[in-house]
Design a protein around this nucleic acid. Sequence first.
DNA 1: CTGTATCCAAGTCGATACTG
DNA 2: CAGTATCGACTTGGATACAG
Lengths: 136, 136
Amino acid sequence: MDTDSHRSHADLLATYRRSCPSRTVIEVLANKWSLYVLAALRRSPGPLRFSQLRRLLDGVTQKMLTQTLRALERDGLVARTVYPTVPPRVEYSLTDLGHAAGELTTAIADWAVDHASRVHAARAAFDARPEEPSPL
Amino acid sequence: MDTDSHRSHADLLATYRRSCPSRTVIEVLANKWSLYVLAALRRSPGPLRFSQLRRLLDGVTQKMLTQTLRALERDGLVARTVYPTVPPRVEYSLTDLGHAAGELTTAIADWAVDHASRVHAARAAFDARPEEPSPL
DNA sequence: CTGTATCCAAGTCGATACTG
DNA sequence: CAGTATCGACTTGGATACAG
C-alpha cells in the first residue's frame, strides 16, 4: 500500500504538526470506544439502538458510550435518529464519512484479533527477560 | 472491503467481549501517540532515533514517547537497537508485525488528513446548532 | 543523547442516582 | 429507553530535575 506516493515530503512532516487539522480528528478516532463503535456500526446490517450498542460493547459504561457517540455525531461520522415515541427510541448509523472511517477501524479490530496471539507471545517474552540482559 | 466474510456471527460478537485477547492489543494501538509512532516509522525509509521521533511528533513529551515506544516494543511491533557508543545512540524500527500494523495506522492518519475539512465542518455545524432544535 | 524519577494538574472512567 | 448529573478513584500527561 503506497498511500503516500502522492504526498510531498513537506506534507508528511506537516501531518505530525500540532497545527495540522487532522490532529483533532485523530484524537477522536484514536481511542478504544470510538474504534469499537465504528466497527460495530459498520458490521451491523442496519442501525443500532443505544441499548444494543451497550450490550454489544462489553464493558462500556453508559457514560462512555454516550460520550463517544456524541463525539462521533459531532464529527459527522455517526447519524443519530430520535423517534418521538414513548418510551423513546434512538438509532445510530454511520454517515458516508463514518462508513469510510469504519472500514479503517474495522481493519484495525480485525488485525488485532488475527495477531493477538503473536502480540501476547511477544509481550510474555518481553516481560520474562532479565533486568540485566548483559551479565557480561 | 469485506474483511468479515470469513468470520462467523459468533466470532464477531466475541470481538467485543472483555475476554477477547484482541482487547489488550486494541488498547495499545488505539491512542494518538502509538498511531503516530507507527505511521512515522512506516513512512521513514530507515530506522529513526529517539530524538528524531521527538522532533517529528510535534507536542510529544519525552515521557510519552518513551512510554509509547516501550509499549510497542513490548508488543513486538517495534525493534529497539542500542549502539554502545558515547553518547548513546538508540534506533527504532518496525518489526514485520509492526509494519503490518503501521499500514493500518498510516491509513487512519492519511484518512484524517484527507477528510479533516469535512469533519471540521460537521463539528462547526454541530456546535452552532441551537439548544432547542425543535421550538415547535 | 537517551533515558529514569518525581511531582502535580487535568482528564478519564466507573458507579450511582435521577429525569423526560 | 435513553439519557443527564455528580462524585470520587484512578490514570494520563506535562514539567522539571537528574543520570549513564
